[in-house]
Simulated scan of single mutants.
Amino acid sequence: MSVFALEPEQREWCDQLRKLAAERLRPLAEGGEPGRVNHALLAELGELGLLARAVTASASGAARKGGTGRALELCLLRESLAYSCPEAETALALQGLGTGPVAQAGTEAQRRRWLREAASGRAVAAFALSEPEAGSDAAALTLRADPEPGAAESGGAWRLTGTKTWISNAPDADFYSVFARTGEAPGARGISAFLVPADRPGLRGEPLAMLSPHPIGTLTFDGVPVTREDLLGEPGRGFGVAMRTLNLFRPSVGAFAVGMAQAALDASLAHAAERRAFGGVLRDLQSVSHQLAEMATRTEAARLLVYAAAAAYDREDEGIARSAAMAKLMATETAQYVVDAAVQIHGAVALRQGHLLEHLYREVRAPRIYEGASEVQRTLIAKELYR
């Protein structure tokens, strides 16, 4: 038995989540408008108490399920939802990512104002890091936070000027965790994090037409006013806030991918056992049975790497960045392989609109890019090996 085998109560919780997602969340997801926030789905996630688990995951002392650490709990939650309803998983994950800097580094007033609203689904959160020329190279961002003249006496005030793009939930979010250059030092050391409500003057958003069920957009900051009360953490230390948030969520991106891979594998097992061909069923063909074995082995390997990274995060081990990167890389690449193989086993029927695999085929591509593309994860892993 694996050292990462789940306890009976954890397996039971995952089974309950799969059932909830299929019975209560999937119908709401199917009724949503592509490219827009599904408020009914968010509200149901809040009513079930699931959003609260993602929204508070970054906070120290977050609630735990049966002794499960917060990172592992987040992975189990995301994997289970992804198996039955990827849209629900994505809605939950984006709330967690957008609120992560607030839960981790926000003031008591900021947490009180926004986290409860986000956990209920009444307020939509977004994580605004990427820019037109700073996607994978996040430390190269150029959004400026120019100090207001004479603001030092009042404790600090800035004007945000520049652009963010590829921002999930933009422009429909109610507030953004925004990372801007305040200039204390070059590179990553000169970046600060701010909580910016969507109704701030000078902030505009435009939707992007993307292959995505949720909104993705561009944000333009035209002298958007922020003060010290809007800071998340200390000036010049925002990059660390961003990376700590991503280190928590990267293994669970892998869990999202594993959930989709498992759904594709289970569909393929059922199809291969029933589909008749060449005088028998597909699973009797060695080429198909070996393909299924490969899919199952890679999925389980990815799952164990995800659980290991989450456990390392919960133990506060050294090398968390490396293990998180390995988990995201392996799981997202594996899911792409498994879903593609599942489509091949099913044949043309899997390409029909509305088929599970047609849906998964569209969903599985993006995780290899967001929160650090696969190439970035390999670069990070290599650097950590020589650290």
Rank of each mutant, 00 (worst) to 15 (best):
G100D: 02
R276L: 14
L76A: 01
L41C: 14
F221S: 05
A331H: 13
A382W: 04
R70W: 10
L385M: 14
P207I: 00
A242V: 01
G236A: 13
E371N: 15
G254H: 05
R322P: 02
W158N: 09
D266F: 06
G96Y: 00
D172Y: 12
S168F: 00
S177I: 10
F4G: 03
V258G: 03
A255S: 12
E12L: 14
G121F: 14
A123H: 11
L17S: 09
G183S: 12
A373Y: 06
T56M: 10
A43F: 03
D15P: 01
H355L: 09
M260Y: 07
K383G: 08
G162Q: 08
L77V: 05
L94V: 00
A335G: 07
A105F: 02
D137Q: 11
R352K: 09
G61N: 03
L51Y: 04
Q16T: 09
E153Q: 15
G155P: 14
G233W: 01
R189M: 10
K19Q: 12
Y307N: 05
A170C: 11
E7A: 15
S177G: 06
R352Q: 12
W158C: 07
A325P: 08
G31V: 10
D174L: 15
R315K: 12
R181D: 12
M326I: 03
D222S: 15
L20K: 11
W158I: 06
V343F: 13
E234F: 04
A324G: 01
A103F: 01
S120T: 07
N247E: 06
A309P: 04
L246D: 06
R64E: 14
G236Q: 08
S60V: 03
L351R: 14
E44P: 03
Q262M: 15
D314V: 12
V224I: 04
E206K: 03
R122G: 15
N169V: 00
A118D: 03
R181G: 09
W166K: 00
T379D: 07
F221K: 04
Y386N: 04
T218E: 00
A57R: 09
L94P: 00
Q336L: 14
A198V: 06
V37H: 03
N247T: 07
L265E: 10
V253Y: 09
L6A: 07
T334E: 13
A125H: 06
G279V: 05
R70I: 06
A308Y: 05
R18S: 04
R36F: 01
S136W: 02
D174P: 12
P197W: 10
S252K: 04
E87A: 06
L269W: 14
N38H: 13
G254E: 07
Y176Q: 09
M330H: 14
L232F: 03
